[in-house]
Amino acid sequence: MFFSVIIPLYNRPQEIDELLATLCRQSYMQFEVLVIEDGSVHDAKSIVEKYRDKLDIHYFFKPNEGQGFSRNFGFERAKGDYFIIFDSDCLIPSDYLEIVKDYLFEHKLDAYGGPDAAHSSFTPVQKAISYAMTSPFTTGGIRGNKKHVGQFHPRSFNMGVSREVWEKVGGFILTRLGEDIEYSIRIHESGFKIGLIPAAKVYHKRRTSFLQFYKQLHFFGRARINIYKHFPSELKLIHFFPAAFTVGFILTLLLNILYPPLAYICNIVLLIIFAMIFFHAWSVTKSLKVAFLSIIASFIQLFAYGMGFIQDFVKRVVLKQP
């Protein structure tokens, strides 16, 4: 099996350097790499050139269109039997491609997704963000989890599709705002089989600060409504949880200001939630510092997603604006 690894890139030369270094250490080397520079101001051409003698690598520069259409650009030029998509802020374990190859030979999948984890080199903030995006106490717990809700939708930081899927379904029709989920829904509807490869994890850096993380999760909340506009049945009860948390938190703040006695129970509930997050994060990460930071990251994960969800729900569903 020959893989085509497709990596869209926008103004992140240092990240692609670290990612390509991990690909050089793969135990299975039957693959090519396509780096699609999406109109970056700070391009990575010189960095990619360093890997010419280490990888079968191809560099392309195109006008900025967003990550979805940049992946399509890579699909059109890929030679592989299977296309693998990574985000540029991922580090790839040395046995990743071997795990995927062995799994695909044993279990016929037309498309797959894999989980993410925190690398030992990540900062405490990055580890806390990683926890928030994979914790059972936040909506991140459904990502890369065998016990997912409804159909499994691979996420584009760690996703693969067969050449047959590309030829019959095409590529992304959205370039942002939930483009990976929309794509996987169309793959499902076309009769192809999608599954999770539990051992095919990547180390996903995500954002390096809580402010960046807030902006990203606010965008994710808006993306869920964008997916709903294309596929109404894909809006599940669990997707409303961050919005409910956000409304509940704001009401609790107001009650604490206007009538503290009524806020007592709400305060207790919040304390219990944050305590559960702290002790679970401590048991997972083995770090008190990361556990404390995980409370902040989990709060941001829920609140930012909830705010983005509410914003576009009101705008696009209630008010029927485009």
Results as ranks from 00 to 15, higher is better:
Glu167Arg: 03
Lys201Tyr: 15
Leu109Thr: 01
Asp95Ile: 00
Leu174Ile: 08
Tyr203Cys: 09
Met159Asn: 03
Gly140Asn: 01
Arg186Leu: 08
His204Phe: 13
Ile85Trp: 13
Cys90Ser: 10
Gln126Val: 09
Ser184Lys: 00
Gly160Thr: 11
Ile99Gln: 10
Ser184Trp: 00
Thr139Asn: 12
Lys205Asn: 05
Ala117Trp: 03
Arg163Met: 02
Pro136Trp: 13
Gly191Glu: 06
Phe192Ser: 07
Ser156Glu: 08
Leu217His: 03
Ile173His: 14
Gly150Gln: 01
Pro124Thr: 00
Gln212Arg: 13
Gly170Arg: 05
Phe86Cys: 08
His119Cys: 11
Leu104Gln: 07
Arg155Thr: 14
Val202Glu: 05
Asp180Gln: 07
Glu106Asn: 15
Pro198Asn: 08
Gly113His: 06
Phe137Pro: 06
Leu97Tyr: 04
Asp102Arg: 14
Cys90Arg: 04
Lys146Pro: 14
Ser135Met: 06
Phe213Asp: 00
Arg206His: 12
Arg206Pro: 00
Tyr131His: 01
Val149Cys: 12
Tyr82Trp: 14
Pro115Gln: 03
Gly113Ser: 09
Arg143Pro: 09
Thr138Phe: 01
Gln126Lys: 00
Glu164Ser: 08
Arg206Met: 11
Gly160Asp: 10
Glu106Tyr: 12
Glu98Gly: 10
Val100Ala: 07
Lys205Pro: 03
Ala117Gln: 10
Lys201Glu: 10
Ala128Gln: 05
Tyr131Lys: 00
Leu97Glu: 00
Gly144Phe: 08
Ser88Met: 08
Thr134Cys: 04
Val100Phe: 09
Tyr214Asn: 08
Gly195Val: 05
Glu179Ile: 01
Phe220Met: 15
Cys90Trp: 03
Lys215Asn: 15
Gln151Ile: 12
Gly171Glu: 06
Gly113Ala: 09
Ile85Pro: 03
Ile181Gly: 02
Ile194Phe: 06
Ile185Val: 13
Ile187Ser: 02
Ala111Glu: 06
Leu174Thr: 13
Gly141Glu: 03
Cys90Val: 13
Lys193Trp: 02
Lys205Thr: 06
Ala111Asp: 06
Gly195Trp: 01
Ser94Arg: 13
Arg207Glu: 15
Leu177Met: 14
Val161Cys: 01
Leu217Ser: 01
Phe213Trp: 01
Leu217Val: 00
Leu97Pro: 01
Thr208Asn: 14
Gln216Ile: 12
Glu167Thr: 08
Tyr82Ala: 08
Gly113Glu: 10
Glu182Thr: 13
Ala118Leu: 04
Asn145Leu: 05
Ser94Lys: 14
His153Thr: 11
Ile187Val: 15
His148Leu: 04
Lys146Gly: 07
Tyr112Gly: 01
Pro115Leu: 01
Val202Leu: 05
Ala111Thr: 07
Lys108Glu: 11
Glu189Thr: 10
Lys146His: 15
Gly171Leu: 07
Leu174His: 14
Tyr96Asp: 08
Phe172Leu: 10
Ser209Phe: 08
Tyr112Val: 11
Val100Asp: 07
Phe213Ser: 00
Asn158Gly: 02
Asp180Asn: 06
Gly160Pro: 09
Ile142Gln: 11
Gly114Ser: 03
Phe122Ile: 03
Lys101Gly: 11
Val202Ile: 13
Gly113Arg: 05
Pro136Ile: 11
Lys127Glu: 03
Gly141Arg: 10
Val125Met: 08
